[in-house]
Design a binder for these strands. Structure first.
Length: 321
DNA sequence: GCGTCCAGGTCTACC
DNA sequence: GGTAGACCTGGACGC
């Protein structure tokens, strides 16, 4: 375990575009982490940490406003003082990944006319999609979700972060951070497989890390600029990332249907008695893309965060553990 | 206890 | 271009 003391810090108050639900965004109902599964919460404050390019940043976020008048105090902690362009890059990246500048209203206008989505946007009003500053954390997550149970996926993720991620110490807290591709690229497949019980996924993970280090990308900024189709094409060129994983990683979002989510969305689209297996994943995905088009990712995101309430309102069982 | 099956995909060889 | 089969591991299940 490598601890890094982040003793240089600054803070300011940001005003995201409303509506912005701080609580639903930093602690999502389905348990999805903001930047790392090891972040800490206390009242209206979260302590988290992430890598922004070569900077390890500890981040404290504190809500000072409301959903309609959001104000968030942002504290950023680093090992050395951040100045000039480096400081601006960290701030801009953080704001971008927290969705401070995005406007939910066009999606809400669309969703309120949809028989399924109208419930979710009422339940989760102001919740933002968030993403890491680089593709490696989500790509690792996607690879570790492949062909196993959720329980084992979580065990593998926990093991990889504990063994190879650094610990950011700042503001009185310790937060474990996702490992960098540089760290994983130095390992052998057999070493990673043995130490973290990854099985065949170790090959994908080491291959991905080495490719990202050798090529220096693609970065989130490059994929943002590339557009949805080009971003997905570039992601699918990377080891271990296929159609499903690329939809998870892309900053444009996709409609990442796997066997589990095909059961959920199949019931929502076709009725409570819909039964599906691996062979129906493609047809459920096509139907979702047909219904929701450019809003497919946000639709997917809102539905999976709202399963309990949605199941009640739609009169069906949606939690399929 | 022990053997078998299969799970929140991807890749490759083969046709 | 499409498709069957292999792939780590561990928990569930039947016997």
């Amino acid at each position: 375990m490598l601890r890094v003391k982040l003793e240089s810090g600054f803070s300011y108050v940001a005003e995201p575009v409303a509506p912005y639900s701080f609580g639903l965004t930093v602690r999502k109902p389905a348990g999805w982490a903001l930047f790392t599964p090891f972040e800490e919460f206390g009242g209206e404050t979260v302590w988290t940490a992430l890598h922004v390019a070569d900077v390890l940043a500890g981040v404290r976020l504190r809500s000072l406003g409301s959903i309609e008048h959001p104000k968030i105090e942002v504290g950023i902690f680093t090992r050395r003082p951040l100045v000039g362009a480096r400081r601006q890059r960290v701030v801009d990246t953080l704001h971008n990944r927290l969705g401070f500048g995005s406007d939910l209203k066009p999606f809400y206008d669309f969703a309120r006319k949809d028989a399924i989505l109208k419930h979710t946007v009422d339940d989760l009003y102001g919740m933002r999609d968030t993403s890491p500053a680089s593709i490696f954390p989500d790509a690792t997550l996607a690879i570790l979700l492949q062909m196993t149970t959720l329980k084992r996926s979580n065990q593998m993720m926990d093991s990889v972060i504990r063994r190879y991620g650094r610990v950011a110490e700042f503001n009185g807290w310790r937060v474990r951070v996702w490992p960098t591709p540089e760290r994983i690229a130095k390992l052998t497949q057999s070493q990673l497989a043995r130490e973290c019980n990854l099985g065949y996924r170790a090959r994908s993970l080491v291959g991905l890390a080495r490719k990202l280090v050798e090529d220096g990308g693609p970065t989130m900024e490059e994929l943002d600029a590339a557009g949805p189709e080009e971003a997905k094409r570039r992601l699918m060129e990377l080891p271990g990332l296929g159609d499903y994983s690329s939809d998870i990683v892309s900053p444009h979002g996709g409609f990442p249907i796997d066997v589990w989510s095909a059961q959920v969305f199949g019931k929502l689209f076709y009725g409570r008695d819909y039964a599906c297996g691996r062979e129906t994943v493609e047809s459920v995905k096509r139907e979702g893309l047909r219904r929701w088009g450019r809003w497919s990712w946000l639709s997917f995101f809102y539905v999976v965060q709202d399963l309990e309430s949605l199941a009640r309102k739609m009169g069906m069982q949606l939690r399929l553990e």
